[in-house]
Design a protein around this nucleic acid. Structure first.
Lengths: 156, 156
DNA sequence: GTCGATTGATTGAACTTTCAACTCAATGCT
DNA sequence: AGCATTGAGTTGAAAGTTCAATCAATCGAC
């Protein structure tokens, strides 16, 4: 678009940027590999099941869940249809307001998360937590907070 | 799978992890939005064109390019076919070894990158560089180096 | 030198995600 | 009450990605 003095990236900035994109591109892929191999589900599907499993009644509205997993409502709807077919959750209209749909985790779905969680957590430790010092973990929290804030709240 | 004392995440670890996944999931999406809007291409396609534009003769072997963009050869092959159809590059067998394919940027492709780059760089500054102090940028380089190292070299 | 194994890349089918159009329930306006 | 409007979710088709099979060129062992 407009080229108002583009201000190119210097070497340090370039290095910072490349390090981050590389992580941003490869981390989700690495999580998918572990979950697909050990549990037969994608990271996105895991997040759906995990989100429901951590909520009060093991149920959430579709739109709340979409925010939680950082995905569009349409993507979520397709994914939930697949998970429903597996018997891990079911959908029902929210009694409080029929415009909302509640996704509810079944006992089978709960079992699935309980099975998958330890392996997933181990992978998170291996890839992210273990390689960093406590100080770096703290730095990463603050850095992440700032970047996520710049990206802004979810719009999908 | 096996549950050898899962060692759950404590609150700080959980916060660190959530901050990072959120960035890893939303940053690529945010880059796609800007590039799609302003240049009509995805971030993946931009990386392909940018990778070629920065290489010595504006040409790279498919496998080298696949490493650079962190994607599978198959994914790259499909994407390059689309870009070739647009006239932004063409493919030719490597004279040095006929098993390799060289992707070569055309003048139109060069023009496309030159047009798209300033807007992309501005977005990178806005989302990542500007919100961080110089010290944090340095911290992020080291943190990224460690995580990327744990993820390992590319296997796709 | 030839034959089998290996390597780089492409292809097509299956699957997933996106996009836009649509449905349905609840609300607001008059 | 009657009827447009809004917001949540779904759907189907198009676009993109993955997976497995395949092809073509080179390397290596004999």
């Amino acid at each position: 678009m407009s080229a108002d003095e583009p201000r190119w990236l210097d070497d340090d900035e370039q290095a910072t940027w490349l390090a981050l994109v590389s992580t941003a591109v490869r981390l989700p892929a690495a999580l998918d590999v572990q979950l697909q191999r050990d549990a037969g589900i994608s990271h996105f599907e895991y997040q759906i099941l995990a989100g429901l499993s951590m909520s009060p009644e093991r149920k959430l509205r579709m739109s709340t869940l979409a925010d939680f997993v950082d995905g569009s409502l349409s993507r979520l709807s397709h994914a939930v249809k697949r998970l429903e077919k597996e018997g891990w959750l079911y959908r029902t209209a929210d009694p409080a307001d029929g415009r909302f749909t509640l996704a509810v985790l079944t006992d089978e779905g709960w079992g699935k998360v309980v099975d998958a969680a330890p392996g997933h957590v181990a992978e998170v430790r291996r890839l992210v937590l273990d390689p960093l010092t406590k100080a770096q973990q703290k730095q990463l929290r603050e850095i992440g907070r700032r970047i996520n804030n710049a990206i802004g709240p979810d719009s999908p």
